[in-house]
Simulated scan of single mutants.
Amino acid sequence: MMKNYNIKILFGSNVREFRHNKGISQEKLAELSGLHRTYISDVERGSRSISLDNIKKIANALEIEVFKLFIFNEEDHYD
């Protein structure tokens, strides 16, 4: 059962996990997505809301489907 969770933390955690699995740095993800490295860092920490356009850019850079960035895992953080 899903508890109340912070969507920004969930999303950021998934971005970080997919980035690590791909073996690339925040700098490389920023380059591939056309976003700034500090923006990627903020997203991964869950401290920034993100537009749909930027979600798509990150998914494309990670070569994954968008929905995978919203998959809930028990290890994710809650409010």
Rank of each mutant, 00 (worst) to 15 (best):
M1E: 12
K3L: 14
N4A: 11
N6T: 07
I7W: 11
K8S: 08
I9W: 07
L10H: 06
V15K: 00
V15T: 01
R16Y: 03
F18R: 00
R19C: 01
H20F: 04
G23D: 01
I24P: 00
I24V: 06
I24T: 02
S25W: 12
S25Q: 12
Q26K: 15
A30L: 04
E31V: 11
S33A: 15
S33M: 03
L35H: 02
L35C: 06
R37F: 08
T38C: 03
I40D: 04
S41K: 13
S41D: 12
E44K: 08
R45Y: 10
G46Q: 03
G46H: 05
S49E: 14
I50W: 07
S51A: 10
S51Y: 08
D53W: 09
N54E: 06
N54I: 08
I55Y: 02
K57W: 05
I58K: 08
I58H: 04
A61P: 05
I64A: 02
E65S: 08
E65Q: 11
V66L: 07
V66A: 08
F67P: 07
L69D: 03
L69K: 01
L69W: 02
I71W: 07
F72H: 13
N73Y: 10
E74I: 12
D76Q: 15
H77I: 14
H77V: 15
H77R: 15
Y78K: 14
D79S: 15
